[in-house]
């Protein structure tokens, strides 16, 4: 009874949980491949996930997904709504821990460390794997405080000038410095949507993470702001490993090196972005990128 109530609550906010409850919602005529098609693994992985199964209560949201994310690579996770790509992304820095009914099985490795090792502190993990959310969510504090929050939290800067430096560098990397350098003490929420999202990116790279997860970072932004963020992702990819969930196939094509296509909790196809968009191997992938569902 309680779990059922909890499940409906969760389903309201997480599409994958909803879809897991009604798998027939998407009329399924094309069979799934027996194994993920393409090259889900790579030689020099930053993160490697193996046999990942995720459950919301009794319903399964992700089925046996194995995927590597290469170092300094941008990987795009695409797929129709509720296919589990956001759930998968959130599992990579254990943001799903906050949902009581969510159970994660399988192995998640960040280089040599097991992410779900009970001995590994989640605070440390999240310092290494940063996250940018769908809706820009700056803290209701000044721009400076927003960026300085992480470094301060983890004790990365002891002196004021060190902190200043981190803030400036992060804002520069996020391409926001020139726009805000004269008003660092003003509220972060007073910026435009695109600026807020870049502020959130600056905030997450201020702690120098190894991986940055982005959950549809541009879905709330206009095309100009989106272009700026995409440019930024391109620049950041030289220093960081980035996993980005997106609904826009153009965006995936523009920013990513590899693309993974999810469908109803299954990882259908992973390949170089070019290959996925020009010569998809599986019929489901083709159907999605040609816009037959989404």
């Amino acid at each position: 009874m309680e779990t059922a109530q909890n499940l409906t609550d969760t389903a309201r906010t997480i599409p994958a949980a909803r879809m897991a409850q009604e798998p027939e919602a998407m009329n399924q005529k094309i069979p799934y491949p027996e194994q993920t098609i393409g090259k889900p693994l790579c030689d020099d992985p930053k993160m490697s996930m193996r046999n990942v199964n995720v459950f919301y209560g009794d319903s399964q949201a992700i089925y046996d997904v194995s995927l590597d994310i290469g170092k300094n690579q941008v990987i795009a996770l695409i797929g129709p709504s509720g296919c589990g790509k956001s759930t998968f992304l959130r599992c990579m820095n254990r943001m799903n821990d906050t949902i009581d009914i969510c159970k994660v099985k399988g192995s998640f490795m960040l280089e040599q460390d097991n992410i779900y090792d009970p001995k590994l502190d989640v605070v440390e993990l999240r310092a290494r794997v940063g996250m940018v959310f769908q809706k820009p969510n700056p803290f209701p504090k000044s721009i400076y405080e927003n960026v300085a929050y992480g470094p301060r939290l983890h004790g990365l800067a002891n002196k004021k000038f060190e902190l200043d430096e981190i803030v400036e560098n992060s804002l520069r990397k996020a391409g926001l410095w020139d726009e805000v350098k004269d008003r660092l003490d003003q509220p972060g929420t007073g910026l435009s949507g695109g600026q807020q999202q870049r502020l959130c990116i600056a905030r997450s790279i201020a702690v120098s993470p190894e991986v940055v997860l982005m959950d549809e970072p541009c879905s709330a932004l206009d095309p100009i702001a989106t272009a700026k963020i995409e440019e930024l992702i391109d620049e950041l990819s030289s220093q960081y490993t980035i996993a980005i969930v997106t609904h826009s196939m153009q965006q995936a094509a523009r920013v990513s090196h590899r693309t993974a296509y999810f469908h109803l909790g299954r990882l259908i196809e992973v390949n170089d972005t070019n290959t996925v968009f020009t010569a998809p191997e599986h019929a489901l992938t083709e159907a999605y990128i040609t816009g037959r569902f989404g």
């Binding site: 820095n93 989640v122 440390e124 999240r126 959310f133 969510n137 700056p138 939290l153 983890h154």
Partner: peptide, 18 residues
């Protein structure tokens, strides 16, 4: 308090108490 603020804080590596 909007859940996005909580997510932002947790995502930055804040503990629940923080």
């Amino acid at each position: 308090v909007p859940p996005s603020i909580r997510e932002a804080a947790l995502g930055m590596g804040a503990s629940r108490m923080q």
